[in-house]
């Protein structure tokens, strides 16, 4: 059926599942990223685990990319997602840095 209503890109029926799975995984991998990062920093995990943290960040970004393209997000949302991912990469570093500093200052 050639529907004139298909002006705005419609989500294809087969794309719904990958969209839901990738967006859920994006969050789960994101959780792993900050979880592993923090655990290594507070020495609950050994140092060799750190590369895995960054690997999970990459997986998160990849999942968001899949999700965004299948959803046909607009330019604005795409930019918002990129900014969110960069922010996400930096977030645990900033948090750890600050917490650590407060700890040091107060332990003295």
């Amino acid at each position: 059926m050639l529907d004139p209503s298909l002006i705005r890109p419609e989500i294809a029926l087969d794309d719904f599942l990958p969209i839901f799975v990738s967006s859920a995984l994006a969050m789960v991998f994101g959780g792993f990223y900050v979880g592993i990062y923090t655990a290594v920093k507070v020495e609950m995990l050994k140092r060799w685990a750190m590369p895995f943290a960054y690997l999970f960040w990459m997986l998160t970004s990849y999942c968001l990319y899949i999700m965004g393209s299948l959803m046909h997000v607009g330019e604005f949302t795409a930019k918002a997602l990129i900014v969110a991912m960069i922010g996400y990469l930096l977030l645990p570093h900033a948090v750890y840095y600050m917490q650590h500093q407060v700890h040091e200052e107060n332990e003295d």
Binding site: Y97, M98, Q101, V102, E104, E105, D108
Partner: peptide, 9 residues
């Protein structure tokens, strides 16, 4: 006490 940085204030 160590010098306080603004980030930990």
């Amino acid at each position: 006490m160590a010098k306080r940085s603004v980030w930990s204030d």
